[in-house]
Simulated scan of single mutants.
Amino acid sequence: MSSMDIHEVLEHLPHRYPFLLVDRVLTCEPGKSIEAIKNVTINEPFFQGHFPHHPVMPGVLIMEALAQAAGILSFKTMGTKPDENSVFYFVGIDNARFKKPVTAGDQLHLHIEIMRQMRGIWKFKAEAKVDGEVVAEAELMCAKRDIV
């Protein structure tokens, strides 16, 4: 199991500001699981409108943070890095649940486990926690597509 700083995260994800939602990987066991963090600050661009007097991280962005961590796990499992000729897309989100709002100052702990991988489609069990409490969970499905 290995950790990754932001520089290694940038090598394993094509996302960039303002859409990079993984700050650090705490542990990664290719073929099995990953644990990463997203530090949620008041400087996030989405807080300007969601909501100005009570900033809450949109649930869809929590799902995206989980998917980005899953992407890192996929690339580490395949032993490759993203390139400009292909992209991973969401193809399904099942059993999504949002249990508690995420606000400025929270640190999201993202935990992803590979459930299965078949014919280029990956399925993951995903869970986001703040202070040890589950704030969101889902089963995510992603697929690699060539764009050339």
Rank of each mutant, 00 (worst) to 15 (best):
M1H: 05
M1T: 09
I6A: 07
H7K: 08
E8L: 14
E8F: 00
V9A: 09
L10G: 00
E11F: 02
E11L: 10
H12Y: 13
H12T: 03
H12K: 07
P14M: 06
H15S: 07
R16C: 05
Y17V: 06
P18E: 13
F19G: 10
L20H: 14
L20M: 03
L20S: 12
L20Y: 12
L20N: 07
L21K: 00
L21Q: 15
V22W: 06
D23V: 07
D23N: 14
R24K: 15
L26I: 15
L26N: 14
C28S: 08
K32S: 14
I34C: 09
E35P: 03
E35H: 11
K38S: 14
N39F: 01
Q48E: 15
G49D: 15
F51V: 08
H53I: 11
V56H: 04
V56Q: 02
P58A: 01
M63P: 09
M63F: 08
A65G: 01
A65E: 05
A65N: 01
A69I: 05
A69T: 11
A70G: 13
G71H: 14
G71W: 14
I72F: 13
I72C: 10
F75V: 02
K76G: 05
T77A: 03
M78G: 01
G79Q: 04
K81D: 11
P82T: 00
P82L: 07
D83G: 15
D83K: 10
S86C: 00
V87S: 07
V87A: 09
F88D: 06
Y89P: 13
Y89F: 15
I93D: 11
D94F: 00
D94P: 10
D94H: 10
A96E: 01
R97T: 13
R97H: 04
R97K: 13
F98G: 01
K99L: 14
K99G: 10
V102D: 09
T103G: 07
G105C: 12
G105V: 09
L108K: 11
H111G: 04
I112Q: 02
I114T: 06
R116K: 06
Q117L: 04
Q117S: 11
M118L: 15
G120L: 01
F124S: 02
F124M: 09
F124E: 00
A128F: 05
K129I: 04
K129G: 08
G132C: 02
V134Y: 09
V134K: 04
V135K: 00
A136T: 04
E139P: 03
E139Q: 12
E139N: 14
L140Y: 07
M141S: 12
A143M: 12
K144E: 12
K144M: 13
R145D: 06
I147F: 00
V148A: 07
